[in-house]
């Protein structure tokens, strides 16, 4: 079965980001960008699916500028068969992104479309379900494992305190969480082969963003620790502070 995985290029979650002078975006200087970790789980899920069945191709799709080529190459390196870059600006407007992706996906008509559950940068969890809605397809979110049966996909979703099993007719859209999809490392041969795999660039059909970022702020600096005393003598004061200041007791 052919599977398309929609990816996003995000700052490495280990990177300490700085707010740019404009105050509405992060300064990309010195920041390492990677495939969003949830999208890695989606890639892993897609690769396992096609490897197990021995048929079908995995296509990596993203909206972004030319810097996203690198993210698509890493998808090709771990095993995607080809990649498509929709040239267009990624904004906070998830619907604009979803429309651009849906218009591309509508042409391709793949039975299974995978997303990471959320992008590691904006955490919005919008685009997957929106694409499903625009395409009139069923959608399961936060899927930790799934199985294809004849014409349907059975998904386990991680819900509060347990697992929920749902069944969707194909074609469908799934957003994936880590679950059992521990991503593989690219092999060195895979990295070299990535260069020879097709990476197609197209202009995105994208509408202007209707959500704009007003302001970014750093979280408040953590106050310094305080030593309230030493030994057993300090316990009453510690308990008082935990109760009255920290409201922890």
């Amino acid at each position: 079965m052919n599977i398309t995985v929609c990816l996003k290029r995000v700052p490495d979650t280990e990177t300490r980001v700085r707010i740019s002078d404009s105050g509405t975006s992060i300064d990309p200087g010195g920041v390492k960008f990677v495939m969003s970790p949830y999208d890695e789980f989606a890639m892993e899920a897609a690769l396992r699916m096609t490897e197990a069945s021995g048929e079908g191709e995995v296509v990596a799709l993203t909206l972004g500028d030319t810097t996203s080529q690198e993210t698509l190459r890493s998808a090709l390196a771990i095993g995607a068969d080809r990649a498509v870059l929709l040239n267009g600006e990624v904004t906070m407007d998830g619907l604009a992104t979803a429309r651009a992706l849906a218009s591309e996906l509508g042409e391709a008509d793949v039975p299974l479309i995978l997303f990471g559950m959320k992008a590691a940068d904006d955490d919005q969890q919008q685009v997957g379900p929106m694409v499903a809605t625009l395409m009139g397809r069923p959608c399961a979110t936060g899927v930790s494992s799934f199985e294809l049966t004849d014409g349907t996909v059975v998904c386990d979703r991680e819900v509060e305190g347990g697992t929920e099993r749902v069944e969707l007719p194909l074609p469908a859209v799934i957003t994936v969480t880590k679950g059992e999809f521990e991503p593989r490392y690219a092999s060195l041969k895979g990295i070299m082969a990535a260069k020879r795999k097709p990476l197609e660039e197209k202009e995105a059909q994208i509408s202007p963003a209707r959500i704009t970022v007003e302001k970014l702020e750093y979280p408040p600096a953590r106050a310094e620790g305080r030593i309230v005393g030493e030994g057993p003598d300090a316990v009453p004061e510690l308990v008082r502070l935990l109760r009255e200041e920290a409201n922890a007791l």
């Binding site: 690198e70 190459r73 390196a77 490392y185 690219a186 990295i191």
Partner: peptide, 14 residues
């Protein structure tokens, strides 16, 4: 090159 960086980063991660 992009491949050289990708190879380095992959081994670094590993």
């Amino acid at each position: 090159s992009e491949e050289e960086r990708m190879i380095r980063d992959t081994i670094r991660e590993w």
